[in-house]
């Protein structure tokens, strides 16, 4: 009887050791592969450079759409990608560069895109609307104001960086 009891515990011990060795094999096999797969998550996103977009003299108090092209390196594929921004000068003569990407589901918004709202940004996908300063109009689908680009003015030229999300109003 006592011999039988000992056998069971020996079996348990073997089971634990087996699990340990199996775990070691699985871990050493999978560790490099998992690190390999999750690499894009862990890669620090490179803050893009400032890009020359427009002459400051072209900017008016009415939002205008400016486009600029950047070379986008997507791993092994390099291509030219066009970005755009709605830019105007507010009453304090400050430049306001707004991202055209709707905060609802990512469509492109247009200034005065709808005849009924000539002083607002309008998103055609789900009738989202934003005031001139980019604040979302309550009771329309978007729940946050349009992103503002980082910007700087050098030698009369406007340079834009990355769009930065703003706090909910």
């Amino acid at each position: 009887m006592s011999e039988k009891k000992q056998q069971v515990s020996r079996r348990q011990f073997l089971n634990y050791t087996l699990t340990g060795v199996g775990g070691f094999m699985a871990a050493s096999m999978l560790a490099p592969m998992v690190r390999f797969a999750i690499d894009p998550v862990l890669k620090a996103s490179a803050g893009g450079d400032m890009q020359a977009v427009a002459d400051v003299s072209e900017i008016t108090t009415e939002p205008q759409r400016f486009e600029w092209t950047v070379e986008q390196v997507d791993a092994w594929y390099t291509s030219d990608v066009t970005h755009s921004a709605w830019v105007y000068k507010n009453e304090n003569d400050e430049i306001v560069p707004l991202s055209p990407v709707c905060k609802h589901l990512g469509c492109q918004v247009n200034w005065a895109g709808n005849e009924d709202y000539p002083d607002q940004f309008y998103c055609p996908c789900h009738d989202g609307r934003y005031l001139k300063d980019g604040t979302n109009v309550p009771n329309t689908p978007p729940d946050a104001p349009l992103d503002l680009f980082e910007y700087e003015v050098k030698d009369g030229t406007l340079y834009l960086g990355q769009p930065v999300p703003r706090e909910e109003v």
Partner: peptide
């Protein structure tokens, strides 16, 4: 086979 023999095999595998 389980766990006595497999343990030996897996030690070789490790």
């Amino acid at each position: 086979f389980w766990p006595n023999f497999l343990l030996k095999e897996w030690l070789v595998g490790a």
